[in-house]
Design a protein around this nucleic acid. Structure first.
Length: 278
DNA sequence: GCCCAGGTATAAA
DNA sequence: TTTATACATGGG
């Protein structure tokens, strides 16, 4: 993997197991939009555009320092997903097939607070509307950056009341967002501790927040704190498990359960006919 | 109008 | 411990 400067940003040669559509537009992050030039989005207060050409990743509006500091980690480029797919393939033949089908998915290392907040918004909601609410959240309360708005900090939101979030049109989730901000700022919930806490305790830590149940907690752990053993189960995944892996539970997927979950989710979404029976 | 969307809090069985 | 219902909003 080698990063060099270009006219418009940087390019990185030797990037494998990465498909930007599968990774940036699969419901783990809500701030990426596909344009003519690639995927445009904001993370860590930086706006960039990404596109792939073979094994080369182009990131426009980025520099080499930010690649080392932000984007290499954000795209999880130092984890060998090919090797992980091999290990998962041993667990179950369908997992092998799902992995091959969605081999360009990576688990983003998003900012913990952003992941927590966006998945609170995601409950009983659809991706299109989630993206709209997140966009309004950033425009209204995020810091102005070059080309857009960063994700608002917990400190900023903790100063507000649920009524102040009315412009988001997020409905009953407003009070959950404010509760999360308050508990993160007061230290009652320590996000960083959730990186190293035993999984069950990390989950319980996040579930102190109103509006955070097992699903939202698991998503925040997986996508915000890179706890890749977390295996978020929603209504769709529950059905996929019952149909495709009737003999298995979430724990059986092992230390890479979160990656397995993403493969299964993508695979099952692309093969809805498997579930018509229900 | 009705149903649903990568759920959760709450009350009741 | 398990099961039913409300919750805000917007698109189909």
């Amino acid at each position: 993997m080698e990063c060099v400067k270009t006219d418009t940003g940087i390019k990185i040669r030797g990037v494998y197991d990465l498909d930007l559509a599968q990774t940036l537009d699969c419901g783990q992050s809500f701030r990426w939009v596909e344009t003519d030039n690639g995927f445009e989005g904001i993370a860590y207060d930086k706006k960039v555009t990404m596109r792939m050409d073979g094994d080369t990743l182009y990131i426009d509006s980025a520099n080499e320092a930010d690649f080392e500091k932000i984007w290499k980690s954000y795209l999880d480029l130092e984890l060998d997903y090919g090797k992980i797919r091999e290990e998962l393939s041993e667990i179950h033949p369908i997992l092998k097939e799902a992995g091959e089908y969605a081999s360009g998915i990576r688990i983003l290392r998003q900012e913990p607070w952003e992941a927590l907040c966006t998945f609170i918004i995601s409950q009983n909601n659809n991706i299109k509307r989630i993206k709209g609410i997140v966009e309004r959240l950033c425009e209204n309360f995020g810091a102005k950056i070059d080309g857009g708005y960063g994700f608002p900090t917990a400190e900023t939101l903790a100063k507000l009341s649920p009524e102040d979030l009315q412009p988001l049109r997020a409905g009953f989730r407003n009070k959950y967002i404010i509760d999360a901000a308050n508990k993160v700022v007061s230290g009652e919930v320590e996000l960083e501790k959730c990186r190293t806490l035993p999984y069950d305790e990390a989950r319980a830590e996040l579930m102190k927040i109103k509006g955070v149940g097992v699903k939202v907690a698991d998503c925040a752990l997986l996508f915000g704190l890179h706890r890749i053993e977390a295996f978020p189960v929603d209504v769709w995944m529950k059905r996929a498990l019952e149909t495709l892996f009737p003999e298995m539970t979430a724990e059986d997927f092992g230390e890479y359960a979160g990656i397995a979950q993403q493969y299964i989710f993508h695979y099952s979404r692309m093969h809805p006919e498997l579930f018509i029976a229900n």
